[in-house]
């Protein structure tokens, strides 16, 4: 399979705290890869390092064939990241918000107009897109942030807790979008602590706990290894096998 994201021995320390303790995984073209773990496990840090917002302490990653340390700009061009920081410019309309980021990604003007319309249609934002974002509900802002993160139609899409703050209907739209992206041959990484979403969507997953990966495999294999019949139990089983201070 064609690995679009290759993570090798990635560590990240902040002062005395080690947030990532040498993680390894690969995510492929045409799959939804889960990055699963409780809050504070290191998921967001891992994403930030892969997306070149943070620099790794040791180790490296290759994204769409580009090294995160040596070719960060190329990496950012090929990756669309929705972080948990989903703020928008409140004095701008939704459309202006999207346009600004489209311009920063250097998308030609007429192409950008088409892309904007496509995304507005996709996430059903017609009604509010020309109102100032300060008036938006949490759900509207979240949709706008998602659209913003994929404005440049990247090969690799990383969503960090994308359904947080969304109601059931809006969540469905986002989950469907991820499925659609998989069909289009993109590499989708879903980072979440909502295991029910992951179980329904992901092809493979890495379970991350205290900065370490405690299991990477197909969802069905993870359940098989841990001798359980749902992802939540598998998750608890895998974490249990790794007592809190085993590595330290």
């Amino acid at each position: 399979m064609n690995a679009l994201v290759k993570v090798e021995n990635l560590t990240k320390t902040f002062g005395k705290i080690t947030a990532l303790k040498g993680i390894n995984f690969q995510a492929h073209k045409g799959e939804i890869f889960g990055l699963l773990g409780p809050n504070g496990a290191g998921k967001t840090t891992a994403i930030r390092v892969i997306a070149t917002v943070l620099t790794p302490t040791t180790g490296s990653a290759v994204v769409a064939g580009f090294d995160i340390c040596n070719q960060p700009v190329e990496v950012r061009k090929n990756i669309g990241v929705l972080t948990t920081e989903t703020g928008v410019y409140e004095r701008f309309t939704g459309r202006e918000n999207l346009k600004y980021f489209g311009e920063l990604f250097n998308i030609p003007r007429d192409q950008l107009t088409n892309r904007l319309n496509e995304l507005i249609e996709l996430f059903k934002m017609n009604e509010f897109i020309d109102r100032r974002a300060g008036e938006y509900s949490t759900g509207m802002k979240q949709k706008l942030a998602i659209a913003r993160s994929i404005i440049h139609d990247p090969q690799i899409i990383i969503f960090d807790e994308p359904t947080a703050g969304l109601d059931v209907l809006a969540s469905q739209t986002v989950l469907n979008f991820m499925r659609q992206a998989r069909e289009l041959g993109k590499c989708v990484i879903l980072s979440t602590h909502r295991l029910s979403d992951a179980e329904r969507l992901c092809d493979r997953a890495a379970i991350i706990h205290q900065g370490k990966i405690v299991g990477v495999d197909e969802i069905s294999r993870l359940m098989e290894i841990s001798g359980t019949n749902n992802l939540e139990d598998a998750f608890l089983q895998l974490i249990k096998n790794r007592p809190l201070d085993e590595e330290t």
Binding site: R48, V53, R76, E85, V88, F101, L104, R148
Partner: peptide
């Protein structure tokens, strides 16, 4: 404060 900084850092702009 608005939580827009990270999105900005994720663009290819240096």
């Amino acid at each position: 404060e608005r939580k827009t900084l990270e999105a900005l850092l994720l663009t290819p702009v240096s």
